[in-house]
Amino acid sequence: MPAAIETRNLTKQWGDLKAVDKLDLVVNEGECYAFLGRNGSGKSTTARMLLDFIRPTGGSSELLGGSGSDPDIRARVGYLPGDLNLPRTMTGRDAFNYFGGLRPSGESDVRDSLVERFGLDPTRPVRELSTGNRRKVGLILAFMNNPELLILDEPTSGLDPVLQEEFRDLLAERKADGATIWLTSHVMAEVARVADRVGLINEGKLVKELTFEELRHQATTEITFGFAEPVPPSAFEDVTSVAAVTQDGVDLVLSLNGPVGAVLKRAAELDAIRVETEQNDLDTIFIQLLSGEEQS
């Protein structure tokens, strides 16, 4: 499958600071790739290099088989910056007409349906809009020309939960239509529904790449057992699926990475009087993965 985005040893360095460090990345056509990392980890710098806003100090990148500096390539790309800024006097409608008019395949019916879908008043100057409404303008601008490749920097930042859901629906539709999506985020749950693969970037380095299924398997379950009298953590040490045990008064908190049957059997033998379960959410996994990489 041909690559929609490909970087080879892509590096951006300012003085001693390596914002992006030898990034090798391949995003295939039709794929949704989530680029996750903490604030300042190099996500936006990568996006800015892909679109030729800033030039790499090493390595190279390609979009849709060409250079991000080529206007013919950029005509096929929809971009949402982390913070959309437009000229002061420009209204949403002005922006749609102007930026849409620069591209060869502007379709006003697509644009109008997106305006309706996101419930935007396009007659107001963009500078007067709230953060969320400015985000809507940016999303409509990114999607309205049905681009082959979407580069979305923190796309749901500032959107309320209902609009976040609407955005994820839209993303799934475009993905089903064959568009390639590359999005950055620091919230893993936000990309869970649509991403095929996830790349974790930390301090400019791509530290881990995995499919979403692989990511889910990293999830651990926590079980808390309550006892009438304190029970030592060593009581569960020989149970194979127990990764860790901590004591909290008369409670024992167990982290599991396997079947729960043996754990429940041991808890019954110890006369547990209460049980609570909790599965780590994706954000916790994200933090665990990054913590692990930072320690290694």
Partner: peptide
């Protein structure tokens, strides 16, 4: 002015050199 606000960057994300 436009570059300082980020508006220029958005313009250059389109098919304009």
């Amino acid at each position: 002015s436009d570059e300082d606000t980020g508006a220029l960057e958005y313009l250059l994300s389109g098919p304009v050199t």
